[in-house]
Design a binder for these strands. Structure first.
Lengths: 332, 332
DNA sequence: ATGGTTTGTGTAATCGTGTGCACAATGTAT
DNA sequence: ATACATTGTGCACACGATTACACAAACCAT
């Protein structure tokens, strides 16, 4: 069609071609603005013919509204977050919002990365990563007053947060494991000092305390299969535990493999293993993991709900609480 | 620090504060431009104090250079691509380029999505997805003449592509399986009509043909564990095959589980199963998959190389070819 | 027929930066 | 001391859209 044209055509040029002013071009592309329907049709026809589309960068500058959303994530491949990411991106796209990915995993200077994104005047910020502090995010993005969604309930007017509660589900799971006769518990953390990790651990600490128990051992991995495998070997061999609560599902799978291959112990008879997240892979036949699961769809619904409130300029911070459930497999 | 200020400060305002013109502000932030070093230092100090950062949207409009990169992917969670995505995002961020994710998986109108992204004047486009035709991508993005990277070698001056060659590795794998005495082969496709799927299948078709063999059966999945599981049951039960070549690793894992659980057949003795991609999960102890693997780092190096050539405005399409290798596990 | 409302379009300012050009100030060579 | 190159800064315009305002034309009611 327009095949070879090198440069993108501009509003003013199209105006000349259609015999109108550039203001009228703009109106033709704004759904509800005073313009003759005949004129609009003619303009849209000429526009299609020449492949014209309004320049979103220029529009953003004028509008003070970029329709860009920054997604701060740990890593892209990480299955723990991937399902949520996928869902959210889909929902954003349906609302004509474009996600910019900020990947913290192996980026040396996360703050600089966030500052870079903030210069693009993103309308919203969603923080999935537990590697950035909310306070830093607020300091960097406060100027544009975007929504910032996170697990961490920071008391700040520009932060809306999603809180998750897994206390009850953790209690159910511990109950089952204790009734199965397990006695020595270990907790395998994802990251040492993250807010989400502390929260999750607390659910299980409380559930154990209620029965006069406590964790006999504590290990730190990095949410990866390999770290789950390696730490589990130590926990089982050195600390002689018979139940491992893992910070996420992937580490739990690693731990299960370690138990089976290195020590010849099987779940759930010799040892109990519990994951967290409820990723799809956990339910695969080869894994069949018992896990403290979060409803991903409900979670993303909540995020989108918060974003919509922010779009509607409903003032103040908002907060939504979600409840986790126990998903039973054959590992505990 | 600047704590409460609601609106982002502008270049002109900062100019007033520093007692210079806004042009000088701009120069203070451009590494090599004629400006007194004393003036620059003073401006940068005042800027930091007031939390000023140049507005990237305005700069992009002026520069005709957005530093945005569109990543067209099938899905985010999909492990097949996730590792590449992660690597690429990391490399882009190191070059101060921001990735915009376009997720095709469940988006009804992929073309409209790409058109939306194109209005943001992205500097480059990287197509990982096999769900969009390169011709469509070119039609939509040609105006900004970005680089378009893909497996599909389209003959177009604005497309640079990465070609992958797995013929030799496929030959090695088939050789091993045939020597193991397997006779009835099936191919389990990811998507019916994608370019990449046809390419991969051809490697194995040729390797079989060389030995006077051909696929006895052909099935179509959707790259997911579940589809691998389901289709494998049919292939094994109905078609009595004893070797399944899968379009990716995830389906191969599903197929392996199906063989074991539904039909009680084990790899590699009863049946051979081969994956493709070489994702990290394939090497996990519980999977230990034989797979036709692509070196992810080399692949992303090639993508970045092409992007750099495009940045340097080296004319014409470029092409880089990568060779796959066989990675041996216990499934074939 | 006249005053008032509605409709459609153009003019011009605006969004926040980058940069060519002009010009003053300073430095350098004869 | 004069001519010339260099450095530092401001002015003004461009980038490509949106939109308040003005105004002409058309329509309507009395």
């Amino acid at each position: 069609m327009s095949g070879m044209s090198r440069r993108r055509i501009t509003s003013k040029e199209l105006a000349k071609l259609a015999g109108v002013s550039s203001a009228t071009i703009s109106r033709a592309f704004s759904p509800d603005s005073r313009i003759g329907s005949a004129t609009r049709d003619r303009i849209l026809a000429v526009a299609r013919e020449h492949g014209y589309q309004p320049n979103a960068i220029a529009r953003s500058l004028n509008n003070q509204r970029s329709r860009l959303v920054a997604l701060v994530v740990n890593a892209i491949g990480n299955p723990c977050e991937a399902e949520e990411q996928q869902l959210l991106v889909h929902r954003l796209q349906a609302r004509q919002l474009l996600p910019i990915i900020l990947c913290c995993a192996d980026h040396s200077d996360r703050l600089q990365l966030m500052r870079l994104a903030s210069t693009y005047q993103v309308d919203h910020v969603v923080v999935f990563s537990d590697m950035v502090s909310m306070q830093d995010a607020v300091d960097i993005f406060h100027t544009t007053k975007p929504i910032i969604v996170s697990f961490e309930p920071l008391d700040n007017e520009s932060v809306s947060s999603i809180r998750i509660d897994g206390a009850e589900a953790a209690d159910e799971i511990i109950d089952k494991i204790v009734r199965d006769g397990k006695k020595r518990f270990a907790y395998l953390s994802g990251t040492n000092s993250s807010w989400i990790d502390k929260l999750r651990r607390k659910w299980f600490v409380d559930a154990l305390a209620k029965r006069g128990l406590a964790f006999e051992a504590q290990a730190f991995g990095d949410y990866s299969y390999d770290s789950g495998f390696k730490e589990a070997v130590l926990l089982l061999h050195r600390d002689k535990v018979d139940a491992i609560i893992c910070g996420n599902d992937v580490m739990a799978i690693g731990a299960r493999d370690a138990a089976r291959r290195v020590l010849g112990k099987n779940t759930p008879d010799d040892i109990a293993i519990v994951g967290q997240d409820g990723i799809a892979m956990a339910a695969w036949d080869c894994n069949d993991l018992t896990t403290l699961s979060l409803d991903h769809v409900a979670f993303i619904d909540a995020v989108v709900e918060l974003i919509e409130r922010h779009d509607a300029e409903i003032e103040g911070p908002h907060s939504i609480t979600l409840t986790c459930t126990a998903r039973w497999g054959s590992t505990a």
